[in-house]
Design a protein around this nucleic acid. Structure first.
Length: 640
DNA sequence: CGGGAATGCAT
DNA sequence: TATGCATTCCC
């Protein structure tokens, strides 16, 4: 005969209870237990029929199990041990009401001692106590073992006894031991759970910051795992959220950066899973969805614009298409096309110049009817003089001749100067377009004719749909010459794009010192405006520190233009030096300290100095640098 | 049962 | 002495 486990206890999610919490808190569920169908641990005696006794007690989760000081409590339990009868027909025994009582730490040794004594009494037939030396021996053993026992995990040891010829249950079958049961209240075994995320989508290139609220975790023993399954449910990709222990807030929140997806160039959104994973035992939380989106950086949009097929002049022969360009809906300027470039009177002048179609009336905004032409002209401050068709044609042909003589395209452009305010479907003006396509000569010519307009400032500073000025596009594409030209024409470097970045921010982010230099030299800049934080809460020093190149020169320029090197970012109070340390960038950190006079003791909202950050990330070199430069090794994390 | 306050322990 | 978290207790 032998004893066999037919239902193991559930490993996780059961809470051990202290004596003070009272007995009845529900029993250990079975491994296959679920909400609608509860099961319990159970064993079966095989190859035997008749009465039997089964004893259950707690043992450690070790290769060689030891008695555990916790107690089994419940119906048939006494002194931490559960004893039941079974048979003679049904040889299974189920245990529906087993509780685990948590011994307090300081009682471990005492309880263990009792257990050992009880066990020895069982084995030996001595009933009248032990000699003093045995007591002593057991006490010493209990004290020494007490230290090494893990109170957060137990296993059930089942021992079956069959009756001997006297009917006494003395025939012991081989003990069987269950799977481990972990205390769900123990910090290192608690159930992992994602409660909330501030965002569930991000760029395929990763690096997006996510705030995740969770049930209690241990900051040194937790990971955020991104994973993807194929149709068959096989795991085909895994990435890890990027954070350090200091990014785990009070055990209940994690601020991390998303990992790069396996394919940065996805064309469609990809759905993956996020879950928490405990490093020590590989336990995971339930997964939550996360979507990787195709990269849509500003640069990529520009790249897309560049890849559009080149127009051909024969497209403009007047067969009803405009060469693929549509005009920005709702823009007033498009209507001005008719009035400022066509002969007075608005007849179509024999079709020599193709006239833009009037856009369909704007449906979303029906009360806004077609605008009175004179009002329109006023609004656009477009100077027009009524000219006859003949006069208009004469001007054009003269211009064309002059162009033939000089090769100076401005001869032609000047007649179209009012059209420079027209935008395409991306909201780009001709200035944007010239910059995007790196047409420096064109840009220069356009700027020359724009300069003759009264509203030249608004044309130079026009923004597209991403709220970028032509100057911003030039900065974004590292086009120094274009930047110089635009600045010369008075372009405003402080206009904010949709991320709250002005041109100086972008130059810093790109680490383009040459462009930064020219931007900083444009006229009438106010340091207050220049040294602003963008929508990510970062200032110029932060962006320059994070740049992958040109950092030193940019930092130097910022410093000499009185930018604040100690500016704290809005989200967490980190300075540029904190960022440099986080990136483990010795060069940038050194430059910030020695050349920009960065404050070594600047503290984040949580009170971390750069040295704290270095220490928590285990960055020896950079910590050494900070110390060598005089950082305070005793700085506390709680400023007064 | 589960949430969480109170207490204790290790720095 | 104060903090951060584990342990214990309470509801």
């Amino acid at each position: 005969p032998y004893l066999e486990i037919i239902e193991n206890p559930k490993s996780r999610g059961f809470r051990f209870r202290y004596t003070c919490e009272g007995p009845s808190h529900g029993g250990i569920p079975g491994g296959s237990s679920d909400k609608n169908k509860k099961t319990f641990p159970a064993v079966k005696i095989c190859n035997y029929q008749g009465y039997a006794r089964i004893v259950v007690q707690l043992v450690t989760n070790e290769e060689n199990p030891r008695l555990h000081p916790h107690s089994l409590v419940g119906k048939q339990c006494q002194n931490g041990i559960c004893t039941v009868q079974c048979g003679p027909k049904d040889m299974t025994a189920t245990f529906p009401n087993l509780g685990i009582q948590h011994v307090t730490k300081k009682n471990v040794a005492t309880i263990l001692e009792e257990r050992y004594i009880a066990a020895e009494m069982q084995l030996s037939s001595i009933n009248d106590g032990f000699p003093q030396e045995d007591r002593k021996r057991i006490s010493v053993k209990a004290t020494s073992e007490a230290k090494s026992i893990d109170l957060s995990v137990v296993r059930l040891m089942f021992i079956a006894y069959l009756p001997d010829s006297n009917g006494a249950f003395t025939i012991m079958l081989k003990p069987v031991i269950s799977d481990a049961i972990f205390d769900s209240k123990a910090p290192n075994a608690a159930t992992l759970k994602i409660c909330r995320m501030d965002c569930n989508a991000g760029s395929a290139s990763g690096g997006d910051e996510v705030y995740l609220l969770c049930d209690k975790v241990q900051k040194d023993d937790i990971q955020v795992v991104f994973s993807e399954e194929d149709m068959q449910g096989n795991n085909i990709w895994e990435g890890y959220g990027n954070f350090s222990p200091t990014d785990v807030h009070r055990q209940f929140a994690i601020v991390f950066r998303t990992p790069q997806y396996r394919d940065v160039d996805i064309k469609q959104p990809v759905n993956v899973q996020v879950q928490l994973r405990r490093k020590s035992d590989h336990e995971v939380s339930e997964a939550k969805p996360f979507t990787y989106l195709p990269n849509k950086s500003d640069l990529e949009l520009i790249d897309r614009k560049r890849r559009k097929p080149m127009p051909d002049f024969v497209d403009h022969l007047g067969n009803g298409n405009t060469g693929g360009y549509s005009f920005a809906a709702g823009s007033n300027v498009q209507q001005s096309y008719n009035f400022s470039s066509s002969p007075a009177g608005g007849d179509n002048g024999g079709g020599k110049v193709k006239e833009a179609r009037r856009p369909p009336a704007k449906q979303q905004n029906p009360q806004k009817g077609p605008m009175d032409p004179t009002m329109l002209l006023k609004l656009n401050r477009i100077k027009t003089e009524p000219v006859s068709w003949a006069k208009w044609a004469e001007r054009n042909s003269t211009a064309l001749h002059d162009y033939s003589i000089t090769g100076d395209v401005r001869m032609l452009l000047v007649l179209q100067r009012h059209l420079t305010s027209i935008r395409d479907h991306s909201g780009d003006s001709v200035l944007h377009v010239a910059v995007i396509h790196d047409q420096l000569e064109v840009l220069s010519s356009l700027l020359d004719v724009v300069a003759t307009l009264d509203n030249k400032q608004s044309i130079v500073d026009a923004i597209n749909k991403q709220k970028q000025t032509a100057l911003q596009v030039a900065v974004l594409t590292d086009n120094v010459e274009a930047v110089i030209d635009l600045i010369k024409m008075g372009a405003n470097p402080l206009i904010l794009d949709s991320y709250g970045n002005h041109s100086i921010h972008v130059a810093c982010r790109h680490g383009n010192a040459s462009i930064l230099y020219h931007l900083l030299n444009s006229k009438q800049l106010d340091i207050m405006q220049m040294d602003m934080k963008n929508h990510d809460g970062l200032g110029c020093f932060h962006l320059a520190a994070k740049a992958s190149q040109g950092t030193r020169q940019c930092l130097g320029l910022l410093k000499s233009n009185n930018f604040n090197v100690n500016m704290a970012d809005t989200k967490s109070g980190r300075t540029a030096l904190h960022l440099a340390v986080e990136m483990d960038n010795l060069v940038v950190a050194g430059c910030l300290i020695s050349e920009c006079d960065a404050d070594m003791e600047a503290a984040t909202y949580e009170g971390y100095t750069p040295l704290h950050v270095a220490a928590s990330l285990g960055l020896c070199e950079i910590a050494t640098l900070l110390l060598a430069c005089g950082a305070d090794p005793d700085a506390s994390t709680s400023p007064p």
